[in-house]
């Protein structure tokens, strides 16, 4: 990598990137143009995150960066040096599905399944934000995830189930 003795990293060649993905610290070398979505899918083989529109309009590429849901198609990987990324592959723990994954299965909240990883990551982000209480609020705050099969009714039901379970757990605590 060409270096500028007077300044920070500055290069059109490969750049060093340290990024934690699903709990694993990765030391990588990426081109400036590498987008996080392509890093995940093409460089690291994490193909659970889907490329839909590639322009931030469909939500299929949604991942969590430092706990916040974002469109990974509109993120330059090199800008996320030091960040923690969670993809659909990182949600299950010890072979057990994340409650949101389990709820999507139970409610049949998909048809073709292409948007599903993004829907689930977005829904996990939504839960963390804690701003949706009603079905109307869930619908509005999930509007960044398009499902062309039209599984919306069951997606809302799945999210409501996980929210309800969380509420009863906190009420019992």
């Amino acid at each position: 990598m060409p270096t500028d003795p007077d300044g920070p990293p500055r290069s059109a060649g490969k750049l060093a990137l340290t990024i934690t993905i699903n709990g694993e610290v990765r030391h990588l070398s990426v081109a400036p143009t590498t987008v996080l979505l392509d890093l995940l899918r093409e460089h690291l083989g994490l193909t659970g995150t889907k490329k839909g529109c590639d322009h931030g309009q469909c939500g299929a590429c949604t991942v969590l960066i430092d706990g916040r849901r974002v469109n990974s198609c509109l993120v330059l990987a090199v800008m996320k040096d030091g960040a923690e990324v969670t993809t659909i592959e990182g949600l299950a723990t010890n072979g057990r599905l994340h409650p949101m994954q389990q709820a999507f299965v139970e409610h049949d909240a998909f048809q073709c399944g292409y948007c599903t990883p993004g829907q689930i990551c977005s829904a996990v982000g939504l839960l963390g934000e804690g701003r949706a209480r009603t079905p109307d609020e869930i619908r509005e705050l999930m509007s960044g995830n398009i499902c062309r099969c039209g599984a919306y009714v069951n997606i809302v039901a799945a999210i409501e189930q996980v929210m309800g379970a969380e509420d009863s757990r906190s009420a019992a605590a």
Binding site: G56, R68, V70, N71, S122, G125, L141, S143, G144
Partner: peptide, 9 residues
Amino acid sequence: GASPQLRNS
């Protein structure tokens, strides 16, 4: 405007 994901970024 936009979506929650876009507003986060």
